[in-house]
């Protein structure tokens, strides 16, 4: 069991990894990755039962995580490496030729910790459901976690999957939506207002939990614990997690403009100043 203090120590280091890896290749998606750092750190260093040293694709007897909004690859790679799936040094290959760390995560190059390719949006909930159904067939009591963007919910497949999961009582599944309210062309309200996602998912038959402070480790851990207690009761569980895009780097915070833009040298220096090196840079 990691203490809150220990987890909070990992967070700024992961944020450093994110901005450094994106800056190194002048490409990537810092905004939502920074916003979901607390979620990833909580999941990989506390919540998931997983075997990083001995990765198996089937993940039998382990909790599984699927990243549906694959552009959050930088934060995903950082926590995978720092929890032991592959050497931290390999992060230097991010988005470069012949790398296992592709721009969007994939199984194609055999990177341990990744079980599905994602990037084209809207597909991860279906995949998570399939993995959860396989766990039920295998009498495997561990859980399946998925992460989605709020803008991603504009993809119709998500709602096909949402309808299926409740109708067929896929109750070993905890989906989380990153409610940062931003997408490429502007705020979600400007681009395509989605109304109440809570009302929508409840109408679709999900057990919906609100997380107001998605950038606070204690709150994230608490809702993930509650979510786990809500599994096995006939309904899939949804966490609507409010985060701030670009959290932890003041000039990136709260704006869609940092969805897919790399910081320049000066901005990198500023970002690193705001996130202290706690575990050693890669």
């Amino acid at each position: 069991m990691a203490s809150i203090a220990e987890l909070e120590k990992i967070v700024p280091q992961v944020r450093r990894d994110i901005v450094r890896m994106i800056h190194a290749v002048n490409s990537g998606h810092p905004g939502a990755s920074l916003g979901c750092t607390e979620y990833f750190v909580s999941l990989y260093f506390e919540v998931l039962k997983h075997n990083a040293a001995k990765f198996s694709m089937n993940g039998n007897g382990e909790d599984l995580f699927f990243l549906s909004n694959g552009h959050l690859s930088s934060v995903f790679y950082s926590v995978l490496a720092r929890s032991g799936y592959f050497p931290i040094k390999e992060i230097t290959t991010f988005r470069k030729l012949n790398s296992r760390l592709q721009g969007h995560p994939t199984t194609h190059e055999g990177l341990p910790g990744v079980r599905i390719a994602s990037g084209s949006l809207g597909q991860g909930l279906s995949v998570g459901i399939g993995a959860a159904l396989a766990k039920k067939l295998n009498n495997d009591n561990q859980l399946v976690y998925t992460l989605h963007g709020d803008g991603e919910l504009q993809e119709g497949q998500v709602w096909e999957a949402a309808m299926y999961a409740s109708a067929k009582k896929v109750d070993n599944l905890i989906a989380t939506v990153d409610m940062n309210g931003q997408q490429i062309d502007g705020s979600t309200d400007q681009v395509l207002p989605m109304g109440s996602l809570k009302a929508k998912f409840e109408a679709f038959g999900w057990d919906v939990l609100d997380l107001e402070k998605g950038n606070d480790i204690t709150s994230v851990l608490s809702v993930l614990k509650t979510a786990k207690e809500h599994t096995g009761k006939g309904k899939p569980v949804m966490i609507l997690m409010k985060t701030e895009m670009g959290h932890g780097v003041d000039f990136m915070m709260g704006s869609h403009k940092w969805h897919g833009v790399s910081p320049n040298d000066e901005q990198l220096a500023q970002a690193l100043k705001q996130n202290v090196e706690t575990l050693g840079d890669y």
């Binding site: 089937n58 993940g59 039998n60 599984l64 995949v127 459901i129 399939g130 993995a131 159904l133 999957a161």
Partner: peptide, 9 residues
């Protein structure tokens, strides 16, 4: 998508 997920188990 569900089919892809089922292969993982």
């Amino acid at each position: 998508g569900i089919a892809a997920g089922l292969t993982i188990g």
